[in-house]
Design a protein around this nucleic acid. Structure first.
Lengths: 190, 190
DNA sequence: GCTTGCTATGCAACGAGTTGCATAGCAGGA
DNA sequence: TCCTGCTATGCAACTCGTTGCATAGCAAGC
């Protein structure tokens, strides 16, 4: 599993509390790795016990105290070791694909609204990604001439991952159009 | 969760034993829903207790007996109810994306081989899909003129799901090319 | 003769992920 | 004034998914 590694990456990009991590997992990191606050708190505690992260209590006014976590040397080493681990299959879970095949044994037209809803969700996410890309990755994109300084690696890699998200959403929208066209073809017969 | 629903769909397409289901989950259904034989046996037992499936003991010569499962009325109803359930978010888990962002805090060039390996895996799967499409969905594809008979719904829906898999693999291959180009850009600096 | 590999089913244990609930103070709106 | 919602952390119970192991007979190759 890689939740701890996702947390390490996120904390290396910027230290923060469990709560802040949970919010990041709803946004940037969460686009390709979901986690609830429960999982995060539990894993953070384990990582603290293992010496992967350091904690600092930060009192706040008008709000509960928070614990700011940052990556310790052991955590960095653990991440590095995981990064060099070659293994990694790919497991996919597409409820919608199951539903589409299942629609053959039910009324297929009942699925149209569902598919349209999903398509809209993907359109929304695409718009969100594109806005983020325009915001974060266009201003300094002019200096791409010549080899990059190592300092830009973090940004470049974040950008290429975001491009992956954009490509994924575009593919999904196109495919769902295809699905709708297919459903419409034999829908009226029933 | 939807493993039971994936099993129902698979059994409706063709009744079979737990072992056969496990093999299907390595092929057609498994392209968008993975499951090991352990999960399948466990869930099948529960579904049997709930009256979702019927079992028939089939003695075989030279091989252990098998239990052939088929969908019962209750199972059909459960599937139908699930199909009409509108909810369904989307959770994604992309280890590779985490690794790519994590590479900013390690040697990025170490990731190149890993990414190349993944790209090859996606190429292989794409080739496999395309072969399956050519085999199963070209011969009778000529009769697409006019409205389809309901009998063709199953095939049509299987085909559109397969097209989704093909689109996904193509997108991944393109994206991994992009990732490799990005890694190569600042790789030599280190 | 031995090992490997396939069909076929299953248990036990663990780890990961989900859901419901609890606490607790503050801010803002109906 | 009450209700909703946000920050912030956490427990307990449950389900889901993974891994290792076990049985057992047959077939094929070395």
């Amino acid at each position: 599993m890689a939740l701890e590694h996702a947390i390490l990456v996120s904390l290396l990009e910027k230290p923060g509390s469990g709560y802040e991590l949970a919010r990041r997992f709803e946004r940037s990191i969460g686009y390709f790795w979901t986690a609830t606050h429960q999982q995060i708190y539990r894993v953070l505690k384990r990582m603290e016990n293992d010496g992967w992260v350091d904690v600092r209590d930060i009192p706040q006014q008008g709000r509960p105290d928070k614990k700011e976590y940052s990556v310790a040397d052991l955590g960095r080493a653990a991440l590095s070791s995981w990064l060099h681990d070659p293994i990694e299959p790919e497991s996919v879970r597409h409820d919608l694909a199951v539903k589409i095949r299942g629609a053959a044994f039910d009324d297929p037209t009942a699925l149209i609204r569902e598919v349209e809803r999903h398509r809209q969700a993907h359109r929304d996410r695409l718009a969100h990604y594109l806005a983020g890309e325009a915001r974060d990755f266009t201003a300094t994109e002019a200096n791409t001439a010549g080899p990059q300084a190592p300092l830009d690696a973090e940004r470049e890699l974040q950008h290429v991952v975001l491009r992956g998200g954009i490509a994924y959403e575009r593919m999904m929208i196109d495919w769902l159009d295809d699905v709708l066209a297919t459903l419409a073809r034999f829908g009226p017969c029933r």
